[in-house]
Computed example of a mutant assay.
Amino acid sequence: MTPWRLALYWAPEENDALHALGSTWLGRDAASGRAQTQPAVDGMDLAELTADPRGYGLHATLKPPFRLARGYAAARDAAAALAGRTAPFDLPPLAVHDLDGFLALRESAPCPALTAFANACVEALDDHRVPPSEAEIARRRPERLSARQRDYLDRWGYPYVFEEWRFHVTLTRRLAPKEKAVVMPAVTAFLGEAPGRKRQVTSLSLFVQPAPGAPFTIAERLPLRG
Rank of each mutant, 00 (worst) to 15 (best):
A7M: 08
L8D: 07
L8G: 08
P12W: 09
E13K: 12
E14V: 15
N15Y: 00
H19Q: 14
L21H: 04
G22H: 08
G22L: 06
W25F: 12
L26R: 03
L26I: 11
D29E: 07
A30G: 08
A35S: 11
A35W: 07
T37V: 13
P39Q: 06
P39K: 06
A40F: 13
G43F: 12
L46G: 07
L49S: 11
L49Y: 10
T50V: 13
T50D: 07
A51I: 00
P53F: 05
Y56T: 10
G57R: 06
L58H: 08
H59S: 04
A60T: 01
A60H: 05
A60G: 05
L62N: 02
K63R: 15
K63L: 03
F66A: 03
F66D: 02
L68Y: 03
L68D: 02
A69V: 06
A69I: 02
R70W: 00
A73N: 10
A74C: 09
A75V: 04
A81D: 15
L82D: 03
G84M: 10
T86E: 12
T86R: 02
P92M: 14
A95S: 15
A104S: 13
L114E: 06
F117A: 09
V122C: 06
V122Y: 00
E123M: 11
D126Y: 02
H128Q: 07
V130A: 05
E136L: 00
R139Y: 14
R140V: 00
R141T: 11
P142C: 08
S146V: 14
Y152F: 15
L153G: 02
R155K: 04
G157F: 00
Y158H: 03
P159K: 01
V161N: 01
E163R: 11
E164S: 11
E164V: 07
W165Q: 05
R166G: 10
H168W: 10
H168I: 09
V169N: 08
T170H: 08
L171H: 04
T172F: 01
R173V: 01
R174Q: 13
V182D: 01
M184P: 00
P185R: 14
E193D: 12
G196F: 07
R199F: 11
T202R: 10
S203E: 04
L204I: 02
L204W: 07
F207A: 10
V208Y: 06
P210Q: 12
A211I: 00
A211H: 03
P212A: 06
G213C: 08
A214M: 12
P215K: 01
P215V: 11
P215I: 08
I218H: 06
E220Y: 05
E220R: 07
R221C: 02
L222D: 02
P223A: 04
L224Q: 02
